[in-house]
Design a protein around this nucleic acid. Structure first.
Lengths: 361, 361
DNA sequence: CTGTTAGCGCGTTCAT
DNA sequence: ATGAACGCGCTAACAG
């Protein structure tokens, strides 16, 4: 069907291997034959077959990125970071979406192993060892992203969830809040647990009694945020501030508060983890702990590429990126302004968007 | 390195082809040998090599989807539609993002052709024939999504941009607006042109003079929406309504209006094409022409799979999906309410999200 | 029911 | 500077 290296060779009156040399710039080829071969390639519209090449090399130059929610801008930003680094090194990327569903995740893992991708960047649907071990059993390098998995020797890139939560809640406490509820994600995921831990540390440090705690686990989506916000409002005394463990939870909570007739921040404060996307920041609103999403993707890919380049034996590394506390309106007026960190975009794309806007303003 | 069919065969004391038959459930294999083979597969953690299989079959069972902006929820929704249908038919999906950059697009096309994907779903960065012809030259089926390309025999799935724009602007006219500006995308892309065409038809039909037209081409991003909104505000008399040709343009425009001290809809109306994502609809706000994004992805994939299934010779088809006009707050109060179509989610996922919310409300 | 042969497209090894 | 032979992992076609 489509022409092969043989067809080109015949056309140019040379041996297949000569065509190969032309394509790959390997070995010696005279100017003249090279020209003939190149002409034949154009005439036949020859396109090299990566499949055969990969079979030969046992390398595909393809990486896989498995995320849990492709509709969340946080993850698409991470994906851009991964893709940019991968492409810069001549790797393609296959992006897969699990919806936090373990069955879907495991199905993808199988398919990708069969495709012989050179490496994985995995956001595990649950903080357990099995999927990582399954990959490692095939001698394929893997980097775990965003979440911790206890007891497994594997590279990890994540944000300081505990610290970010701690600082965010501490800020609320500094504003005078004494009844703060946390709306978290699934207790099976380390980030959800870590953010609760940061919350608890802040409360404890402030000397609040244990019964001040209002902890609501759920899932990392809008519906859960809505539901748990309603629950939180039932607790007595009613919280004066809500801490949402991710952006979607915050959006769901905002809707619940809106329906309950509560204005943010006048009637109740609302802060969250994760950026809402740049383009929701029409009027900067959410006070939040902003993860460096793009950078997370970059660093994870760099780690993976290092493994591929031969750092096979090196000790597993854990990279914990800092979280930026961004003070805006949803937390209300502060009495003693703490040191606020300005929002700093970390993707070229995001930077570009902001630059374009800045030029115009 | 990783075990092959041969290793399994040796272990089980059979010939390689027998292992193949077990794996693929093809041909006859006795219960007993099957059991031995399966045991060997488990012991060796054997994973079939898709590369070799694809080389043999000249089929990869992989589809490629090339979109122009993966950060726009419209496109991730489309991608879900594609992926769901593809997976249901045993196909994997490679998702690529071009940022409306032709060079990036063409680079991806080359890589994907080399990977021998079985088919393409392409959102062309520009409405020109070359990229489609390049794919067809390799005898690979391709479906063009969202945009028209004049003079090329190819399957197309798109929305009725002209009609949607017409109805949206007609609605504004019915509200009494006589000075309406349109903020569109690149004149090189059919949707941007079509939406302007619908706008013009509505104006003409209302008997407005040609000088009532206020047309601003740009790009499909926030910065462009911001910039063109500012320009539009300069025209005299100042428009009383803006029509943004996509969601990101609307968001940029909203920011411009905010900075200009204009409230929507009290001081100026703002309507747009494309959904803003579900989770921006905290308080339903934008009046818009909503494309059936998920369905677009589905239909495109179905068309592509039909071609793969052998409908090779069939005439090119063009599927034009209707656009739903959704009346909400950003257009202001109406005097004579037209027949508004309720927003109807068309993805299982979106439906799920809404159901969960509805249950709770 | 099971095995042998051959070839998918490419590139390394070793000749010439 | 160019080419022949071989094998990457798998399976269709044809024995047995």
């Amino acid at each position: 069907m489509s022409p092969t290296i043989r067809d080109v060779a015949r056309r140019a009156g040379v041996a297949p291997i000569t065509v190969s040399r032309v394509i790959n710039n390997s070995g010696y080829v005279s100017q003249e034959t090279r020209a003939r071969v190149e002409a034949a390639i154009v005439e036949l519209r020859y396109v090299p077959n990566t499949l055969a090449r990969s079979l030969r090399f046992k390398k595909t130059r393809v990486l896989a990125l498995i995320v849990t929610d492709i509709t969340n801008p946080f993850w698409t930003t991470v994906a851009r970071g991964v893709e940019d680094v991968a492409n810069a090194h001549g790797f393609s990327l296959i992006l897969c979406n699990t919806d936090e569903d373990e069955a879907k995740q495991d199905a993808y893992l199988q398919v990708l192993l069969q495709k012989r991708v050179d490496g994985f960047i995995l956001v595990p649907a649950r903080s357990i060892a099995e999927p990582v071990l399954a990959i490692q059993a095939q001698n394929v390098p893997v980097v775990v992203l965003d979440r911790q998995i206890p007891g497994v020797a594997v590279d990890v890139v994540r944000s300081d969830s505990e610290g970010g939560a701690y600082r965010l809640v501490t800020y609320l406490l500094a504003l005078g809040h004494r009844h703060i509820a946390v709306l978290s994600g699934p207790p099976t995921i380390s980030t959800a647990v870590d953010r609760v831990a940061g919350y608890r540390r802040a409360l404890a440090e402030a000397g609040l009694p244990p019964d001040a705690e209002r902890i609501f686990y759920g899932t990392y989506d809008i519906a859960s945020g809505y539901q748990n916000a309603l629950r939180a409002l039932q607790s007595t005394p009613r919280p004066t501030a809500l801490f949402a463990a991710n952006n979607f939870i915050a959006i769901g909570a905002l809707r619940a508060l809106d329906e309950a007739g509560l204005r943010v921040p006048d009637d109740i404060a609302l802060v969250c983890f994760d950026d809402v996307p740049l383009w929701l920041q029409i009027t900067p609103f959410f006070t939040m702990a902003s993860q460096r999403a793009y950078q997370m993707g970059q660093r994870a890919t760099e780690l993976l590429l290092e493994r591929l380049a031969g750092a096979d034996q090196a000790e597993p590394r854990e990279i914990v990126l800092p979280v930026d506390i961004v003070i805006r309106k949803s937390s209300g007026t502060m009495r003693t302004p703490p040191a606020a960190v300005a929002h700093r975009p970390d993707s070229a794309w995001e930077q570009h968007q902001m630059d374009r806007l800045d030029e115009l303003i």
